[in-house]
């Protein structure tokens, strides 16, 4: 079985708020010291989902695919060190912001160039733009079925059975391969890169493609980011005094009662 996992490099979503700033002239996050570039956590969990399938069926091949600047090689290295087999970077200039259509189109062409695959996995959304569009968009372009928000994936012969998170519950859905599945955080924590795979990572096949290797047609941006900003917080927190829990509880309950909130 061949699984292609689409991953993205993002600014560390767990960064302290003080280090997260936006240049409002360029509508971009400012790369300051201390703001690391990491693999988008949902995509890391998609790799984990692929590795769990490989744990069961060791002849599974996992190819990780990313679009990004040269720095995105780091997320490929991370994926290979977790246990993926091959990696492909579609290299674009740093600072180029692709909209979801252009991203899906690039991935579509890259997947066509890869050739055969059984399953494509991606995180449910990227941890920077939080759009959640590219996965299903790619499936549309490839004309393959898509199942979103997976928390468990099992391949049974030529079918894939997915437990997915829905509003107030879960669904079990099955479809035939090839298919695309987006992975939700409920799938569980991703494994850490291990020593054995890290040692092997530099010898695993890694390719770098450019736009010229893929599309010949220009991509028209359909989603135009006209302003990116950090919303202002206007709240002021009133800390309750009181030296004991009983005192604080009494103050709080009285306050809430006075405000007719309880």
């Amino acid at each position: 079985m061949h699984i292609v996992v689409c991953v993205k490099q993002v600014h560390d979503p767990e960064v302290a708020p003080a280090l997260f700033t936006i240049n409002e002239a360029t509508n971009a996050v400012v790369s300051v010291a201390g703001l690391a570039q990491v693999i988008s956590p949902y995509d890391e969990q998609a790799i984990e989902a692929a590795l769990r399938m490989k744990d069961k069926k060791p002849d599974t091949k996992i190819t990780v695919l990313t679009i990004g600047a040269a720095s995105a090689r780091e997320v490929l290295k991370h994926a290979l060190s977790m246990g993926a087999d091959e990696a492909i970077l579609v290299n674009i200039s740093a600072g180029v912001l692709l909209d979801s259509y252009a991203t899906a189109k690039f991935l579509h062409e890259a997947v066509n160039k890869i050739g055969s695959f059984d399953l494509i996995l991606a995180g449910r959304q990227s941890a920077d733009l939080d759009a959640g569009v590219v996965g299903n968009g790619l499936a549309e372009l490839l004309h393959i079925p898509a199942i979103t928000f997976a928390k468990r994936i099992e391949v049974v012969e030529s079918k894939v059975v997915v437990d997915r998170v829905v509003d107030n519950g879960s669904e079990k859905i099955e479809t035939t391969l090839p298919a695309l599945i987006t992975v939700s955080n409920e799938i569980g924590a991703a494994r850490k890169p291990n020593l054995r795979e890290t040692m092997r990572a530099s010898r695993k096949p890694t390719q770098s493609w450019t736009q010229a290797d893929l599309s010949k047609e220009p991509m028209e941006a359909t989603e135009e980011l006209i302003k990116l900003f950090i919303p202002k917080k206007e709240k002021h927190c009133e800390f309750l005094a009181g030296t004991s829990a009983a005192e604080q509880a009494s103050l709080l309950v009285r306050k809430l009662r006075d405000a007719r909130l309880i």
Binding site: D130, A131, A221, T222, E224, I226, K227, L228, F229, I230
Partner: peptide, 15 residues
């Protein structure tokens, strides 16, 4: 849009 894990907002024009 709400983006960057809720840290930012982006105004997007759909063309």
């Amino acid at each position: 849009r709400v983006c960057y894990g809720g840290k930012a907002r982006g105004i997007v024009r759909l063309r």
